[in-house]
Simulated scan of single mutants.
Amino acid sequence: MENQTTVYILILTRLTDIPSLQLLLFLLFLLIYFITLNANFLIILIIVTDSHLHTPMYFFLGTLACLDMGYSSAIVPRMLFDLLTDRRLISVQACITQFYFFLFFIASEVIVLAVMSFDRYIAICRPLHYTQIMNWKVCVQLVSIALAFGAVYSLVHTLFLSKLTFCSSNTLQSFFCDLPQLLQISCSDTSINILLIFVSGILYGVVILGVTFYPYITILRTVLKIPSINMRSKAFSTCSSHLTVVFLLYSTVFFNYLRPNANYNCTEDKMASVFYSTLTPFLNPLIYSLRNQELKNSLRKILHRQWWGQS
């Protein structure tokens, strides 16, 4: 039998090899993380405090904001710690735990985005039946299913990942614990894991993508028939915000996971990882808040009450 040395400590890769940029990147990502948490928390606060926003659409938007906060918090604090201390050492157990929570949040978010498409379809194409179909019980059930499916999906990948052995080369070509890079440094047979990525990714992606985009075919036809320009503009604004968020998430995730022969030492691969792990949850609340007039009006009312209340 061949001797095999098991390594329980992994080394994360630097975002940059230029030491003078370490502090600058730390400050930049600290600012991004601060804005991400506060922007998403502000959206949740507005939705909770304004009774006019107690509707299914804003319930799902609040859920999306919660997932974005968790999604970002699974990655950025560790990245900030490594940028500040240049330690970059992480145990295999901690690495797998980080990956589980990261995948849980991102898988749940993908399903919530699909649910939001269904919600927009009912609201625009079947408005008379909207309150009957999208009642609070259904909304809670849909979010619960999204979270449960995200937990199971991430658990399956994590269990298969925990069976692998990491030896010899223990430098992870990423600044956080992501699945493709972990498989790259494993000395075990990863063929099952790779097959699982493609099979589950294609099935998961095709089904969820279908549920996400198919309603927009009917939505587009319905919106174009609306005689009122203001109502048409409002419908397009809501849908375009949702589609922009979906495009940002799917494009970066597919770029990272479903490309054969990816070289994770390349700058573009690192940039893609940075984008979908830190910038996507940062951009989501900005996209929704800037293009949503009701959110902006509610924020003005809250600020007005706070200002005059203190005065």
Results as ranks from 00 to 15, higher is better:
Ile46Gln: 10
Tyr33Lys: 01
Phe59Asn: 14
Ala39Ser: 13
Leu45Ser: 14
Phe26Ala: 07
His54Glu: 09
Phe59His: 13
Leu27Ala: 10
Leu28Asn: 01
Phe29Val: 04
Asn38Tyr: 11
Ile35Val: 15
Phe60Tyr: 14
Phe60Gly: 03
Ile47Glu: 09
Ile44Glu: 06
Pro19Arg: 03
Phe41Pro: 00
Asp50Asn: 15
Asp50Ser: 14
Phe34Ile: 03
Asn40Cys: 04
Val48Pro: 00
Leu23Ser: 14
Phe41Ala: 14
Phe34Val: 05
Phe26Glu: 04
Ile35Cys: 07
Phe59Tyr: 14
Pro19Asp: 06
Ile47Gln: 09
Phe34Tyr: 10
Thr49Ser: 12
Val48Leu: 12
Leu27Cys: 11
Ile18Thr: 11
Ile18Tyr: 03
Ser20Asp: 15
Leu31Ala: 11
Pro19Glu: 08
Leu42Tyr: 03
Phe41Thr: 06
Leu31Lys: 02
Pro19Cys: 02
Thr55Leu: 10
Leu53Asp: 09
Pro56Ala: 08
Leu45Ile: 04
His52Lys: 15
Leu61Phe: 10
Leu30Asp: 08
Ala39Leu: 03
Tyr33Asn: 04
Gln22Cys: 01
Leu21Ile: 03
Leu64Gly: 09
Ile44Cys: 12
Ser51Lys: 15
Phe60Arg: 04
Met57Cys: 07
Ile47Val: 15
Phe29Ala: 08
Ile32Arg: 01
Tyr33Leu: 01
Asp17Glu: 14
Leu30Asn: 14
Leu42Cys: 12
Leu30Ser: 15
Leu53Gln: 05
Ser20Val: 12
Ser51Leu: 08
Ile47Ala: 11
